[in-house]
Amino acid sequence: MPLPVIIDCDPGHDDTLALLMLGKSPELNLLGVTVCAGNQTLEKTTHNALRVLTLAGMTTRVAAGASKPLSSKITPVSDIMGESGLDGAVLPEPELPLEALSAVELMAGLLRQSGEKVTLIATGPLTNIATFLTGWPSLHSRIERIVLMGGGTFGNVTPVAEFNFHTDPVAADIVFRSNIPIVMSGLDVTYQALIYEHEIEQIRKLGNPVSTATADMLAYYLQRIVQRQYSKDGAHLHDPCTVAWLLFPDLFDLEPAYVAVETARGYCFGESIIDYNGKLSGKPCNAQVMVNINREKFIALIIERLSRYQGL
């Protein structure tokens, strides 16, 4: 039986790749897509999600959520993602409708309707997830787990804070205090999840409209990352790690940890404190944290899933 999932995202080049993997992964039953502000404003990330789903021929339900974090303000990463949040490729205009429901209302309805527990995938700031957890405590038991991208033992917006957690540390704190099983894909593993120029060209050579658009987006993304010296020659595929773990968990090494998020304003705002095995804090582990990835097999998985779009 396919695993029922909902993805909450802020597309974003790497969110886009996660969505496209979901579109051709029959092992996972995508119930819905919810969108938050993060990489760009909510208006832009919602438009991007609808354009990507239209490109892929996906017909899932889509709802917009939080336009601002619980604890901070949106700081779009235009220097990396561009003014649209998804520069680099020509994408079709949306053909999917946007739900009248809010993101959290759609989450609640889908969880009630599902005959099985649902896995939540979170690839943006955790504002929508935290708002749902706070507003619908009776539905916590309907969640199998939360697989999220965020955090790490170092930062990419400040020396200690990763973008998603730094954007809304209060939301991240709520999620990690929820007692719901969490699998965390942080910078320690996503900085290993690099794609290189020759691999982007392999995607382009697949020769279908989805792979061509993906290659164009990734080429732009790689160029921006290298120009701004986030990497010497590869682009970090942060968000697809969540979907890849659900498909093939053996691609990753995980360690149990107690994870806390710093919400106080100051130098450490948004920092994730990761205490492996709870050794130093003495607190029970609340997450499984990805620490290593088989990069070559990860990239091969992405290319294989994009190859399935032949005939669109």
Rank of each mutant, 00 (worst) to 15 (best):
S281M: 07
R295Y: 14
S185V: 06
Q288T: 03
P249Q: 11
P159G: 09
N29K: 14
Y220W: 11
S102M: 02
V183A: 05
L222W: 07
A213D: 08
R142N: 08
N277S: 05
H140G: 00
P97R: 07
P256W: 06
S211V: 01
S281F: 02
H236C: 10
A257I: 05
I302C: 12
Y220V: 02
L139G: 01
A257F: 01
S84I: 05
G278K: 08
P181D: 09
F248D: 13
F176P: 04
H166N: 12
I200V: 13
F248L: 12
L280P: 08
A103G: 11
G109K: 02
E95I: 07
K73D: 14
I302S: 04
A100E: 15
K283I: 00
V33C: 04
P137H: 00
A264K: 15
P240K: 03
M1A: 14
R265V: 09
F132H: 01
R142W: 13
V104M: 10
T190Y: 13
E83N: 11
G109D: 01
S67P: 05
V183R: 03
V189W: 04
P181I: 02
G12W: 07
M217Q: 08
D10H: 00
A171W: 05
E162I: 04
H198N: 10
L98D: 06
Q227M: 13
L110W: 04
E271T: 10
L218W: 09
S211D: 07
V62I: 08
G266F: 12
I293D: 09
G150L: 04
S114H: 09
H47A: 13
S231A: 14
L19F: 03
Q192I: 10
Q229A: 11
T131C: 12
F163M: 09
L246F: 11
E271L: 11
A213T: 05
G155C: 11
A18S: 15
F165D: 10
G85L: 02
S281Y: 01
I174W: 12
P240G: 06
A56K: 06
N29W: 13
F165V: 15
G85K: 07
L254F: 15
E296G: 03
G150F: 08
R228F: 12
D10P: 00
I129N: 05
Y276F: 14
G38W: 07
E116P: 00
S102C: 08
L254P: 02
Y267G: 04
A66N: 08
A172Y: 07
G282N: 07
E95Q: 15
L106N: 04
I273W: 11
V5L: 00
I195K: 05
S25F: 10
Y220A: 00
A172K: 01
G152W: 01
V291A: 07
C36Q: 00
A100T: 12
T75I: 10
H198E: 12
G152V: 01
A172W: 00
T45L: 10
T123A: 04
V189C: 05
T45N: 09
A108K: 14
L120K: 06
D233T: 06
T60P: 02
H166Y: 15
C285G: 02
V5I: 09
